[in-house]
Write a protein that binds this DNA or RNA. Sequence first.
DNA 1: ATTCCACCGGAATAGCGGGATA
DNA 2: TATCCCGCTATTCCGGTGGAAT
Length: 344
Amino acid sequence: MIVDDRVLSEDFVPSEVVHRHDEVNRLSEAVEPLVSGGRPDPAFLFGPTGVGKTCIARYTLHRLGEQLPSVRVAYVNCWQEYTRFRVLYNLLETVGRAFDVHRSTAKDELFGRLRAADDAPIVAILDEVDQLEETEVLYDLNQLPHVSLVLIANREEELFAQFDDRVRSRFRAGTRVTFDRYGGDELVAILDERARQGLEPDVVGESQLRTIADAAAGDARVAIGILRSAAQRAHSRGDDRLTDDLLADAIPDARIAIRRETIEGLPDHQRTLYEVIDERGEIEPNELYETYEARVENPKTRRTVRNYLTKMAHYDLIAATGERRGRTYRVVEPLADAKPVDGR
DNA sequence: ATTCCACCGGAATAGCGGGATA
DNA sequence: TATCCCGCTATTCCGGTGGAAT
């Protein structure tokens, strides 16, 4: 049934892209100066989730790396690596100079090492860069002539709003590549390609791919997740084809499973907060805190809880409605935004 | 219209953990 | 071993704000 499950995984980079040729070309042009030993301006990739930004960045720069073996490509996801230290550490790691770096190494030691690693160009892909908390590191990196930046974020305005003036003015220049949502046909083509590589022939039919594509609402990540989930269920049952029933189960499952994993991965206090909000449906800040306070062993302070709440809102686990007085929190339903997309 | 105050979130500070250094 | 240094989290302090109360 499943031939190669990596093909169906989140971060698989295909050897050929099915769509997005324009976007690949734009990004290739942006980093083109590297071929002649020049220094590209920073490149920006903008667009909603699941439209192939990360995939295209990796694909394009992998291609460049084949053409120019000396170029080193580093990928950093700023969701996890949101401090200056962590970004620099990750860059050093791909350059192979992170040995004996530890928390107590001097403040500018990391940056100094990166500056010294100038024997070959480095392309730094900073994904989800709008999650970066210490944006000055972008300014610093931009100062290094051998480092080229590829920055990935959802929306340009929101990204630039977080920058301080120094960073903002430096990054006015640069190539912007924007990604639109996939249409139904495009998603079907992507799924078809993945199914051909990852599954045995005739496991899934054209109309089933269409069903998945409709449920995914233009989000390739969700679409591939549904296909993976359905294939895994069929696989463990010993079936050799996907049934429509199985697919119907897998569609809500794929979204909920992602959600459940995130919640289970939350630290205890944050999970308790989530549970309280979930139980009440809608709850005011003070009542939320008092319920939380009564429920846990060593409650954190109100300020810390506020930090947790903003963080969880950031993850799209909860949402707040209203400002200041009269504000309420509620959980975000993972299924709420599943809208079918027209097939064109 | 004015005052009140619940709530948010920025900034500074403290404390912990853990490797380095002497 | 004692001390230093630093990243990171939580805490303390506080100013700003807009809806509610008067």
